[in-house]
Design a protein around this nucleic acid. Structure first.
Length: 259
DNA sequence: ATGACTTTCACGGAAAGA
């Protein structure tokens, strides 16, 4: 099974690149973030023409997440509910079961700055995910993936010194992310696959030629149940989709599980 | 040194992203 996670930075603006991804990689499940659609704008028909159906959480503006699956795979029990979510009106969480695995696509709050109200909202949001992951742990295998907006360690930051005092790298954010992993019994698929040697990023600022200088962050993660970890055959960051015509500022991540 | 890009909404430019 192939599971892609991708912050598309507007699904409508990126539909041609999503089509490229689906045609080239034929993933079974795709977890999207920052779809930026109002509910009526979500491109169900266009995706159906590409062979996929979707469960979406859509509220317009900056957020929006979705779970896509090949049309042959049922999307069961979708929900956008997340108990304890401090931003429940923003579409940042969607869950559904596909092929017996509980999937969640998540777009974690940015936080803006360490002294901003939204930073504390971010920590609350991560705690809500940890609580949910703890509940799901009792029920079976899960994959929570998306834009976590946290770099798990300094290995995941192109210049840790430059990021001191900023969001995405602070100790409380990292601790909150660790709680998600511990509570859910989850592994970071990328680290599980590559160990501590692999320095790779999933996001690069549009500005200043950051992508070409490889000045990025690894903030997009597949968090996978330990019971599935033995099936992790590969984890790839699809850098080619960060290039070319109107790319997102995030690259897709492709997780391959053996059947 | 600073800002350097892209999207949305809406029709100029602010807000937001990370």
């Amino acid at each position: 099974m192939r599971v892609v996670s991708w912050n598309v930075n507007s699904l409508r603006a990126r539909l041609h690149r999503v089509e490229e991804l689906l045609a080239q990689h034929q993933p079974d499940v795709v977890l999207l973030q920052e779809t930026k659609c109002a509910p009526e704008q979500f491109p169900h028909e266009e995706l159906a023409a590409m062979g996929y159906h979707a469960a979406d959480a859509s509220s317009g503006r900056w957020t929006g997440v979705a779970i896509l699956a090949r049309r042959e795979l049922a999307i069961e029990d979708p929900t956008t509910e997340l108990f304890g979510n401090p931003l429940a009106s923003e579409a940042r969480w969607v869950e559904a079961t596909v092929s017996g695995i509980r999937f969640a696509s998540v777009y974690v709050v940015n936080g803006r700055s360490l002294d901003h109200e939204m930073y504390f909202v971010k920590l609350e949001f991560l705690q809500a995910i940890a609580d949910r992951a703890g509940d799901l742990r009792e029920k079976g295998p899960m994959i929570i993936a998306g834009d976590m907006n946290v770099c798990p360690t300094d290995l995941d930051v192109w210049n840790p010194v430059a990021f001191e005092g900023h969001t995405h790298v602070s100790a409380p954010e990292r601790k909150a992310l660790t709680r998600v992993l511990e509570s859910g019994g989850l592994v970071d698929a990328h680290r599980h696959r590559y160990g501590d040697d692999a320095v790779q990023y999933t996001w690069w600022d549009y500005r200043a030629g950051s992508f070409h200088k490889n000045q990025g962050l690894r903030i997009d993660l597949h968090l996978v149940s330990e019971s599935l970890a033995g099936q992790i055959a590969d984890v790839r960051i699809l850098r080619d989709l960060r290039k070319g015509d109107k790319p997102s500022d995030h690259a897709p991540l492709e997780l391959e599980l053996t059947d």
